[in-house]
Design a protein around this nucleic acid. Sequence first.
DNA 1: AGCACGCCGACT
DNA 2: GTCGGCGTGCTC
Length: 667
Amino acid sequence: MTTPAIVARVLVDSPLPQLDRLFDYAIPASMAEQVAPGIRVKVPLRSAGRIADGIVIELAPEGKYAGILSELESVVSTVRVLAPEVWALARRVSERAAGSANDVVRLAVPKRQVRVEKAWLAGIDASPEAPVPVVPANDPDYAAGRIEEAIASGSRLAVDAVPRVVELPGFPFAGSPAGGRWVGRWATTMAAAATQALAKGGSAILAVPDYRDQEQLVAALQAVLPPERIVHLDARQSNPDRYRAHLACLSGAPLVIVGNRSVVYAPAANLQLIAIWDDGDPLHGEPLSPYVHARDAALVRQELQQCSLWFVGHARSTEVERLVELGFLEVLSPERTRFPRVVPTAQQPAQDRFAAMARIPSTAWREARTALESGPVLVQVARPGFAPRLSCTDCRQSARCRKCDGPLGTRTARSIAACTWCGVPAADWSCGTCGGARLTLVGQGSVRTADELGRAFPGARVIVADGEHPILHVDATPALVVATRGAEPIAAGGYRAVLLLDGERMLARESLRIGEDCLRWWANAAALAAAGAPVILVGVGGALASAMATWRPAAYAASELADRRRLRFPPAVRVATVTGSADAVEKALSSVTELAGTDILGPVDTEDGVRAIVRFDYGRGGEVASALRAEVIRAATARRKRVPATPGSVTLPTLRIRFDDTEPFIE
DNA sequence: AGCACGCCGACT
DNA sequence: GTCGGCGTGCTC
C-alpha cells in the first residue's frame, strides 16, 4: 500500500528576511495524525545548526523542493493558532509593505501560554451552555434598516458619527454594568452594527485607538449583548489574557472582538464586519515593522473576506475621503441630526476683569459663566502641566536641558523646572546663549489654565484631565473640566459649553496632517457637548473654522486631499521611505527608478546613513514593494560588515523600508 | 543569525 | 605537505 507523500510547508519563526518564506518538511509517521495547517511545530534548520519554532501553513504533495527533506522535529501543540484566512492576510499585508510575514504573524498570534491552552482545551470538551440569543439592534439616527442592510450586503462605508453623548439603558441580562453610563453616541452605532453581524451568525471586529474609546465601546456593547459574546483582544493585555482571548476567538462561536490596532488580525469566526473608530488617530498606526496601519490591514482583509467594512468618525481622514471619492466607500450619514453649535471667535482680549487671561475672549467667558450655572463646562487645551515651556528671561531663547538638550517645563505652580524629555530637574540653570539665570514661563498647560480659571470663578469646581490625571467620566453637576486634547472625560448629559482654547498653538506644529488632526481633536471634543450647547473655537479662522461651524469635516478633507493631489503628497500618492547605508539605498532606488509613475526625493543624510522617499501611484504599489523587498533580502545576505563591536549600540539592518509614513513630509 | 565550505599565507 | 584566516552562501 502506498500513500501519496505529503509534506508540511512551514513558516519558520526568524527575523531574517531571507528566511521569511515556506520550508518543506517530511512528516514522521508518529506525527501524521496531529499535523494540520495552523499548528505550532519545531523544525531543524540544518545549515544554521539549530531547532527553530514554526507554524505549519499547509500540507502539500511533495515536489516543490528538489533536495532531501528534513523531518519535523516535534509538534508543539495541536491547536490551530493561525487560521488560514489570517495567514492569507498576513502574507498580503507583508507583501504590500515589503516586510516579513513573520512580523505580521507575530502581531496576529500571541505567544503560547501552556496553562491557558490546557484550560481552554479542557473547557472545549465540556458541553457548552446554550448561547443567549442576540437581539439585533438598529440605530434610530440612521435611515430605518440601513445598518441591517449594510451588514447583510457586506457594504463598505464611511460612517459619519452622531456628534452627541448618550446614556446607556439597563440591560436585561444579569451582571451588565452598562446601565446609566454615558458614552459617545458613536459607540452605540458601532454596537448596533455588531449585533447585526451576530444576528447573521457572524463575528465583528471593532478597532479603537485607545483605552478611553475601548471603555465606551465595551459599555455600549454590554448594554445590548450578553458578556460571553464580547472579547477583548489587544496588544496591551498580558500574554495569558491575550492568548485566552485568541483561543476564545478560535472556538468558532460568533463574537464581537474589541481591541486596538492589532485586533484587525483576530481569528474571527465567520467574519461579517470590521469597524474602525476614528481612523485618523495616529494610534491606529502600527509602530512595529512592517508598520502597517490598521486601516490598510482592514482594507486588505475586507478584500480577502468580503465582509462589511466601516470607518466611523466625526472627522474624516484624507485616506477615507480618497476612498469615498473613488466610489470604494459609500457615505452613511445620520438622517436627522443636530450638529454642535460651533462659534469661531477671533483672538481678542477680554475687556473685563478677566483680561489677564487674554487667550480667552469675552464671548467665551460669558458663555462659560452662563453654562457653569447648569452643568459641566469643557475647556480643551493643547498641553499638560503648568507651563509647557520655559525661556530665558533675558534673551528669550527657549530653555534647554543641560543633559539631553530637551525643552524645560513645569508641571505645577510650585514645582521646579525640569526637562520634559528626560525629567532631570534644572537646578542652577543658566542660559546657554546669553548666560542669564532667570526663567520665564511660556504658554499655559492644563494645570495653569485650571489655576487661572479657578481664580476667575471662585467657588467653581475645577477638574484637570490629562495624561497624568486620567479621568473618564464627570457627573452632570457644574464644574470646569480642563482637559488636554484627546483626554476629555465624558460628561453625563453632555457639556453645557465647550471652549477650544489653544487652536493656534495646536496648528503651529509642523506636520502634513496637522489640519486633519486639529479638526479631529476639535470635532471629537465638540461631540461631547449637550444638544444646543455652544462650542467656542478660539483664535482659528479659515477653512478649518468654517468646517467646524458648518459641521462639514468631509468638505475639509476633500479640499485637503485636492491640495495633496496637486503637490503629489500622500494619500494622493503612496510613499515609501528607504533608509540605510548610502550604497544600499542607492541600489534600492535604482531598482525602482525605472518604474513608471514613481519619483524619488533625496537621498538626504541622516544620523546613520541616508534616507530617500519613493513616491508612486497606487497602481504601482505591488511592483515597488516587491522590488524593494528583493533589495532588503539582497542587503541582508550580502557581505556582512565586520562589526567593530561597539557595546550597547543596536545593529540596524543596512536597508530599512517603511511604507505610507507621512512623517517625513512637513509643509 | 549561525554554520560549513573553500581558497590563500605561514608553519612543523 | 596542512592549519586556519575569513569571505561567501545556505538554511526545506
